[in-house]
C-alpha cells in the first residue's frame, strides 16, 4: 500500500470512528509541482488526501489555538513543530492525532523552473526521477538533485512523534555540510553584503512569519502600533530589523522545516539566518527544538553550567 492510500485509510478511520473532527493533510494542487493543504471532515473528503514530493507546507501552522480534535499529516520536520507546540501549550497532546510520514525530501519547484526556463504544464514522479513537461517538451531530473537544500541534508526525515506511521521509516540522511556550515565560513563583509542584498528584495508580505508554526503571537512586534517597533518603510534596514527580530524570537524554537523560505515570494534565503541561530543554540545549549517530547526547550531550562558569554566581563 502506498503512502497516499495509507494516509487515506488512517484518516477515514479516524473520521468514521469520531476520534477527530478534522484531518489536516495535503490535497492535489492546481499547479504542477504544487500540493495544497486539505481539511478533511468526512470520510469522502479523506479520499482526496495525497502524499508526494510536493507536500512541502508545514501543516502544524494550523494547530495553535485550535479547540477541536485534529488529525494531522506530518513529515519529520513538521512533527518537531507539533512537539514544540505541545511544549509551548499551543495545543494539547490528547487533542492531536499525529499521522507521521517518513519523508524522502520535498522538490524545490523554483530550482526546477529555473533549470527548464520555460513554463511547466505538468509534472510527475517516476521512481527516482521527476518528469516535467511543457508545450512540446519534456525533461527528466534526478529527484534527489532538485530537492530543497534543507531536505538534502535533513537528519530528521522520520517523524519524532506519531500515533500512526504511513510508511516505513527511512534511513537518516547524512548529506554533508549544510548551507549554514558553508556560508558561515565566508568573510564577515561578504555575509553582510549578501544578507543586505537579500533583505532589499523583501516586500514585507510576512509570508515567512505566517507560514511558520512557531510564529503564533496574537500581535507580532511588527504589527504593534503602540509602541511602533518597526518603521513602515520597506528598505533593507527595516526589513533586516524585522528578520532579526523574528530569528531571535525563534531562538531555540525553530524546527528548521524551511516553511519560511518556501513561502517567500521573493526567494529570500531565510534558512541561513535561522540555521545559524539553530546551530548556535545547539553548540551553546546542546538543544534542538522539538526533537524530544520529554526534554524542555532551551529557553525553558536553566543549568548552572549554561554558557553566559553574553554577560559583561566574561
Amino acid at each position: 500500500m502506498g503512502t497516499t492510500e495509507k494516509i487515506r485509510e488512517i484518516a477515514a478511520g479516524l473520521l468514521r470512528d469520531g476520534k477527530v473532527d478534522v484531518v489536516i493533510g495535503y490535497g492535489p494542487g492546481t499547479l504542477p509541482l504544487r500540493s495544497t493543504p486539505l481539511f478533511a471532515r468526512t470520510v469522502e473528503e479523506a479520499e482526496r488526501l495525497i502524499w508526494d514530493a510536493t507536500c512541502g507546507n508545514n501543516l502544524a501552522v494550523y494547530l495553535p489555538g485550535r479547540k477541536d480534535r485534529v488529525g494531522i499529516v506530518v513529515k519529520g520536520c513538521d512533527s518537531r513543530a507539533v512537539v514544540q507546540l505541545i511544549h509551548e501549550n499551543q495545543i494539547a497532546r490528547e487533542q492531536v492525532f499525529v499521522i507521521g510520514v517518513p519523508c524522502a525530501g520535498i522538490i524545490d519547484r523554483r530550482q526546477v523552473e529555473a533549470a527548464v526556463e520555460r513554463e511547466i504544464r505538468a509534472a510527475r514522479e517516476e521512481g527516482a526521477e521527476l518528469v516535467v513537461e511543457g508545450d512540446g517538451w519534456s525533461r527528466r531530473f534526478n529527484r534527489e538533485e532538485v530537492l530543497y537544500g534543507a531536505c538534502r541534508t535533513c537528519r530528521h526525515n522520520n517523524p519524532v512523534l506519531y500515533d500512526a506511521l504511513a510508511g516505513e521509516p527511512l534511513p537518516p540522511r547524512d548529506g554533508g555540510p549544510t548551507l549554514v556550515e558553508i556560508w558561515e565560513k565566508k568573510p564577515a563583509g561578504e555575509r553582510r553584503d549578501f544578507i543586505l542584498s537579500e533583505m532589499a528584495r523583501c516586500i514585507r508580505c510576512y509570508a515567512c512569519r505566517n507560514a511558520c508554526p512557531m510564529c503564533y503571537c496574537t500581535e507580532c512586534f511588527v504589527d504593534s502600533s503602540t509602541p511602533r517597533w518597526l518603521g513602515r518603510a520597506t528598505d533593507a534596514g527595516e526589513n533586516l530589523f524585522f528578520q532579526i527580530g523574528r530569528v531571535l524570537h525563534l531562538a531555540g524554537r525553530c524546527v528548521a522545516c524551511g516553511a519560511c523560505s518556501r513561502a517567500c515570494p521573493m526567494d529570500i534565503k531565510l534558512g541561513l539566518l535561522l540555521g545559524k541561530m539553530n546551530k548556535d543554540v545547539l553548540e551553546l545549549f546542546g538543544h534542538e527544538a522539538g526533537l524530544n517530547p520529554e526534554e524542555p526547550p532551551a529557553l525553558n531550562a536553566f543549568r548552572p553550567d549554561d554558557p553566559e558569554t553574553f554577560l559583561l566581563g566574561k
Binding site: F39, C205, A207, R232, A263, P265
Partner: peptide
C-alpha cells in the same frame, strides 16, 4: 478561507490591490 495563512503575498503582487497606510515617522 480555511487554509489561508493571512500573509500579504497575493495583495502585494496583485496589480489592482491598492490599499495603503499613512504614517508619520
Amino acid at each position: 478561507y480555511e487554509k489561508c495563512l493571512g500573509c500579504g503575498t497575493c495583495t502585494y503582487l496583485c496589480p489592482t490591490c491598492h490599499c495603503f497606510d499613512l504614517t508619520d515617522e
